[in-house]
C-alpha cells in the first residue's frame, strides 16, 4: 500500500543517484540498497489486478526492455529498476501516461472510500470519545480523563486520516490526468 506513488519514486531515484542500486523491497516497505559505480533508475507502475498469465506477459515484456522487477503485487503496484540509458521511461506517449494516472485515481478513490466507510462505522455508534460521561466531568478529573482518552481517539482516527491521505493522492493524480487530457 502506498499513499503517494510519485513521491516514493522520486525518493528512490534520489538514493539511486547517490550511487546505489536497490536489491530488495520487503513487504513492510524496507528498502535494501547496495553501492554501485553504475547509474540506475527506478520506475513505479500501477496496473489493475493481473491474473497469473497476464502478470507473466506483463513481466516478460518489461524484462525484454531491460527492466528488472524489484517488487510488487499482482494487485497493483510494481517497482521496476534499470540501468540508466536513453530509454528511462515506461510510458512514451500521452495516452498511456494519462491511463496510468486514471488507474492511480481509481486506486486512491477505492481505498479512500473504503476507509471513509470504516471510519464512519467506528464513529457512528460512539462518537469521537468513548468514555461515558467524559463531557460532564469537571476540573482536573476532566483533564486527566481527556488526556487519557486522547491517544485512543487518535488510534480510532487512523482510518479517517488515511482516507484524507488517499483523498490528496487522488487529487494529485487527477491534476496530472487532466493536464494530459487538455493538451
Amino acid at each position: 500500500m502506498f499513499f503517494d506513488i510519485e513521491k516514493q519514486e522520486q525518493w528512490l531515484n534520489k538514493q539511486l543517484h547517490k550511487g546505489y542500486r536497490c536489491t530488495h523491497i520487503s513487504g513492510l516497505g524496507i528498502y535494501t540498497f547496495e553501492e554501485t559505480d553504475k547509474r540506475y533508475v527506478m520506475r513505479m507502475d500501477y496496473q489493475d489486478y493481473l491474473s497469473k498469465q497476464k502478470f507473466k506477459d506483463y513481466k516478460g515484456l518489461y524484462e525484454d526492455f531491460g527492466w528488472v522487477y524489484i517488487a510488487g503485487s499482482r494487485l497493483g503496484g510494481h517497482y521496476w529498476q534499470k540501468e540508466d540509458d536513453n530509454q528511462n521511461e515506461i510510458f512514451s506517449d500521452r495516452q498511456s501516461r494519462s491511463n496510468y494516472y486514471k488507474r492511480l485515481m481509481n486506486y486512491s478513490a477505492g481505498f479512500g472510500l473504503m476507509l471513509l466507510f470504516i471510519s464512519y462505522l467506528i464513529f457512528n455508534d460512539s462518537g469521537l470519545y468513548l468514555a461515558d460521561g467524559l463531557w460532564s466531568m469537571e476540573g482536573t478529573l476532566f483533564w486527566k480523563a481527556f488526556l487519557f482518552e486522547t491517544p485512543f481517539v487518535l488510534l480510532r482516527s487512523i482510518p479517517f486520516l488515511m482516507a484524507v491521505f488517499f483523498g490528496c493522492s487522488f487529487y494529485k493524480a487527477f491534476r496530472k490526468y487532466s493536464t494530459l487530457r487538455e493538451g
Binding site: 507502475d45 515484456l61 526492455f65 512514451s92 495516452q95
Partner: peptide, 8 residues
C-alpha cells in the same frame, strides 16, 4: 520508440 508500459 515505444516504452514498455505504453506497448503493454
Amino acid at each position: 520508440i515505444l516504452a514498455a508500459g505504453t506497448l503493454y
